[in-house]
Design a protein around this nucleic acid. Structure first.
Lengths: 206, 206, 206, 206
DNA sequence: GATGAATGAGTTTTCATTCAT
DNA sequence: AATGAATGAAAACTCATTCAT
């Protein structure tokens, strides 16, 4: 009856394929302007197949957001392990953390762009989930600052809560501006700027 | 045929009223989830009246974005005047700038929230216009850093282009986290944290 | 309060002015594509004034159709008076009739175009009224043919009912093709062709 | 959600069915007074199905006009083939031509009525396309008259350009009056009247 | 499992007409 | 009488989702 390939794939593979197609489609036009039609076309399957694997458009997007958040959860960005902290000076610690964060972001830049540009302001509670993650991350940065302060790297009067915000903001802006564009970024330079600015910003000897 | 109020207003007043109603509606539900129906209900007028003043939903939103951008253009945030720079030390200059910026943001926080949460990632080129403004602002911060470097406040090796990004990111995050929420922010504290972090971050004596 | 001229005109003059504006507007875009807005703009009056003089869009158009049909009723096209018939040969009679018809059509070509291009197929019974007029005209042509047959000008076997249709069709096509266009027509040539074709067409000596 | 019939048809068949339903609907109420709702009700399908097959109301009507014009293009009415001309006298040729034309018109009278009553005066350029066809037809009649004149059937002074208009007008009027009504026409009588009138009308021996 | 034609609730938009000033 | 802002019923059109094949 049909025309297409009617290729039978295992559910996992098909799901993966659809997820990829959805990512490309959403990146191209944004969540609302992307229609299910475009996703299935991109994937080369029929509408029916799409709905066999996802509850709907909203569900694919949710899956994408989940995946993204999972990646960052796994990468545990910016939280220095105690033993790392013990072995190295603050500068090295920061450098390693930032590098790992930026590399993770760069590796998953497509999903990340989706997350930052689309998942925000998207009624269905997506924004809230992203915000949760920001909070968690804020906590970690905050904890690092606690350690730095304990060790005398950060000055005693530092408003650590706000400082964590400032640090987060720096990373976010750098990410948006330098990692999401088409050009390959100079990660070293980005890391150095972040490390230098943060270290001085919190420095004991002002 | 039915009568409602049939209150007759001058086009300017009506337009203003509709703009206000639209702002409230958009803030409540976001751009896509807000329907013209809800805007006109909020304004207490008929659909026809709405379309007599705006080409459509897209056009009201565009008007809102325009207004917002105009406000920040007028506020000229963060660009210190030469004579100000000459009279005061860098700390005072920064403090004044940040205060002005944050106060403007706080005053217009409803519009700002709309801009940051809705206008970004909205197909119709809104994001591009917002990005333009970010660029312009980046330029200004950059120029300030040039001045600071000339006067020996910023260290000679400072990667000013990136530093401008970091500064912008700090302001953006602080704004999102502290100015857009329901709680009245402690502007003094925010300003101090920003000033302190930036000044140290760029400081000559590291 | 207002901007316009607020010129007070007698009802008759205003009505006439509106009728003229409506004619121009309808000719430009057709009945459906012409909006009341365009008519009042063309006339330089407000919507309210328009509705003070006509029940609505439909009513202006009806007034225009009425006027047109009245003109042709008054012109009594194509019906030769008995005394005329008595005095002249058939050729002269036809020539006079056709000339009068075509001249009337030419004089009122704008209204005529409206009638032929718009009033047809316009739900509201306009088409029916036009058709009535065609029937009346058909009767007259038919009567003329009766006279011609009595006088031996038309052959005895002539299917007069159909012949009247043919004659009407000839006039209609000539009118559409040559009188409604932008070029000034050569009425003499048109009349000669009609007279010659009809006279031969019905001629006794075939 | 509710189910209706959900009869699954091939696109071609469905399109054909919709075209038929649209024709009936347009014939009943005319182009403007027919709403998509009525077409889909007539076809027994949902709005969505309609829009899957046609861009909109305008597009169905355009398809109808196209089909109509194609039919008449295929029927090549009124253009006698050279070999036909050679074998028969002018009267036979005309009789055959008219018969073919009127039979084609009669067979497709529903579409034809739509074309003549609706497509004319319909902003979107429909009228222009119909007029084009009239021009082409005019050319053919004109060419036939050239042949007739060459063969001495038509008199030497005949204004062939205008005569072609007259012939076209006759056919048009006869068609409107006798083929589009509810009564079965007497085609023989119509053909005879046309042949006789035209032959005499152009006759050499006046 | 896959297909894609079919569905229809939900939105946007238009424009003839009304009526407060 | 004149004005023009306001009205809202009436269309047109969209697109996520369903389900017969």
């Amino acid at each position: 009856m049909s025309v297409r390939n009617r290729q039978r794939l295992s559910p996992e593979v098909r799901r993966e394929q659809l997820l990829g197609a959805a990512t490309r489609a959403f990146l191209r036009r944004g969540y609302h302007a992307t229609h299910v039609e475009q996703i299935v076309e991109e994937a080369g399957v029929s509408r029916g197949t799409f709905y066999a694997h996802f509850e709907g458009k909203h569900a694919v997007f949710a899956a994408l957001v989940d995946r993204m958040l999972q990646i960052f959860l796994d990468a545990r960005p910016a939280l220095p392990e105690p033993e790392v902290l013990a072995l190295h000076d603050a500068e090295t610690v920061l450098r390693l953390s930032y590098r790992e964060v930026l590399e993770t972001f760069w590796r998953h830049r497509r999903l990340l762009r989706l997350l930052l540009e689309e998942a925000v302001g998207l009624e269905k509670g997506f924004a809230a989930r992203v915000e949760e993650h920001f909070q968690a991350w804020h906590q970690r940065v905050r904890q690092t600052l606690d350690l730095f302060q304990e060790r005398g790297v950060a000055h005693a009067d530092l408003d650590k809560d706000l400082a964590a915000d400032l640090v987060l903001g720096m990373v976010e802006r750098v990410t948006r501006r330098h990692l999401l564009g088409p050009k390959k970024p100079d990660l070293d330079r980005l890391v150095e700027a972040l490390v230098s600015f943060e270290l001085r910003g919190i420095a004991s000897a002002a």
